[in-house]
Design a protein around this nucleic acid. Structure first.
Lengths: 200, 200
DNA sequence: TGCGCCATGTATGCACCGTAAACATTCAGA
DNA sequence: TCTGAATGTTTACGGTGCATACATGGCGCA
C-alpha cells in the first residue's frame, strides 16, 4: 500500500526494479500507442513502459484484459466528450451537439474507438460503461423530444449516432460528403430525430 | 487461360503442383474459416487450401488484399440478403424487412461482418460494393417514405440500420432486450422512419 | 516434336507476436 | 534481521506476415 503510493510519486528516479505503478503506466503506454494510430501489442506496451515483455502479466491476465481496461478508458472519454458538448450547446440543440461530438470523438480516436466497440470487448465493465454513454444520450433525448420518446425510439437514436460514427470511420459517407462532420452528421440526426409534423 | 479453366474443372485429382484456381480456393478457404468464427490468418488459409504458406502471395499482394477480396464477398452477401428480404416481404413493410435482414446478416456472420466494415477495409472495390448496399436500401426508402425523403434522411436511415447491427453485434442492447432480432430492431426502425404525424 | 520461358508453387529464414515456466529482486511485516 | 509474498526478468515455444531464392511444369514457338 504505502509502498505503491510512495513509489508512484517519484517517476524517473529510484533506479527501481519495482516500477511503482506499472498497472497505470501500462494503461497510459497503451493509450499513447493508440493515439499514435497503432494497435498496441503487449510487447510494444511493455517496451514503452520500459519493462520486460512478461511484466504486464503481473497486472493483466492477458492481452485481452489490458485492452478491456483501455476500452473502459475509451468509453469514459466518449462520455466526457458528450457531456462537454451538451454543456456547451444552446438549449434545444444539445442532442445534436452530443451526436456531433460522438462522431467527432470516433474520428479523432479511430483506433481507440474501434477497439472500444470491438469483437469480444463489450463484456463486464466495458458494457456497463457503455450504458452510461447511452444514459447521457437518453437524458437529453427525453428532454428535447418528449413527444416521440419511447424505449424503441431511444435505441433507434443511439443507433443513428453510433451508426454515423461507424460509417464515417469507415469512409462510407465520403461519396455523399467528403467531410461529414461539417454538416452532414448534424443534418442526418435532425432529419431522423426532429420529425416535422405533416401540417406545419 | 485454357489451362486454368481446364484445371479448375477437376478438383481433387490431377496430383498437381499447379493448383488450377488457387485464387478462388483461397477465397473459399478464408470464408470457411470465417464461418467457423476464426479470424483467417494467411497461413491458415493456405493450409486449408492445401498449399504452402507463401503460395497466396502469387495471387494477393498481402494479407490485406486477401481480406479485401473477402470483404467484397461479405458486402455482396449482405446485398443479396437485403434483396431477398425485400422480395419476401409485403408491400409497405419492405424497408423494415431489409433492416431486420441487415442485422440478422451481421449476427449470423459476425466475424465476416466486422471484417467487411473493418479498419482499412473500405477502399476501392469494397467501398463501391457498399454503395450498392446503400442503393438497395435507398430505393425502398424512397418508395415507402417519399414524404420524408432527403439525402440526409437517407444517410440517417442507413446509419440507424448499420448502427443497430453494430450495437447488437457488440451485445450493447442485451440489457434492453436479450434477443433484439425478436422485435426490438423492427420497432426501433419503425420508430425512427415511420414518423407518426402529430394530428393523427 | 521438342525446347525454353515464365507463371505458379515451395523452401528457408527473419522479425515480431502472445504466453508458459523458472528464476531474480526487493518490499513489508514478524 | 529474517522470511514470505509481490513484482519484474529470462528463456523458450509455437504462431504470424513476409522477403528471398529455388523448384516445377504448362504453353507458345521452332
Amino acid at each position: 500500500m504505502g509502498r505503491i503510493e510512495a513509489a508512484a510519486a517519484n517517476e524517473s528516479e529510484k533506479g527501481a526494479y519495482h516500477h511503482g505503478d506499472l498497472r497505470a503506466a501500462l494503461l497510459d503506454a497503451a493509450l499513447a500507442l493508440l493515439a499514435e494510430g497503432q494497435e498496441p501489442s503487449l510487447r510494444a506496451v511493455a517496451r514503452r513502459a520500459g519493462v520486460s515483455p512478461m511484466a504486464p502479466y503481473r497486472h493483466y491476465a492477458d492481452r485481452e484484459s489490458l485492452l478491456a481496461a483501455v476500452a473502459v478508458r475509451g468509453v469514459e472519454g466518449l462520455k466526457a466528450a458528450l457531456e462537454a458538448a451538451d454543456a456547451g450547446a444552446e438549449p434545444g440543440h444539445r442532442l445534436v451537439a452530443q451526436a456531433v461530438a460522438y462522431v467527432r470523438y470516433a474520428v479523432e480516436h479511430p483506433v481507440l474507438f474501434r477497439l472500444t466497440f470491438g469483437p469480444a470487448r463489450p463484456v463486464g465493465e466495458v458494457c456497463e460503461a457503455s450504458q452510461q454513454v447511452r444514459a447521457v444520450l437518453l437524458e437529453r433525448l427525453a428532454a428535447e423530444a418528449p413527444e416521440r420518446f419511447s424505449p424503441e425510439f431511444a435505441v433507434g437514436c443511439w443507433a443513428v449516432i453510433h451508426g454515423l460514427a461507424m460509417l464515417v470511420l469507415d469512409g462510407l459517407l465520403q461519396e455523399t460528403d467528403p467531410d461529414p462532420l461539417n454538416g452532414l452528421v448534424q443534418k442526418a440526426v435532425e432529419a431522423m430525430v426532429g420529425c416535422r409534423r405533416a401540417g406545419a
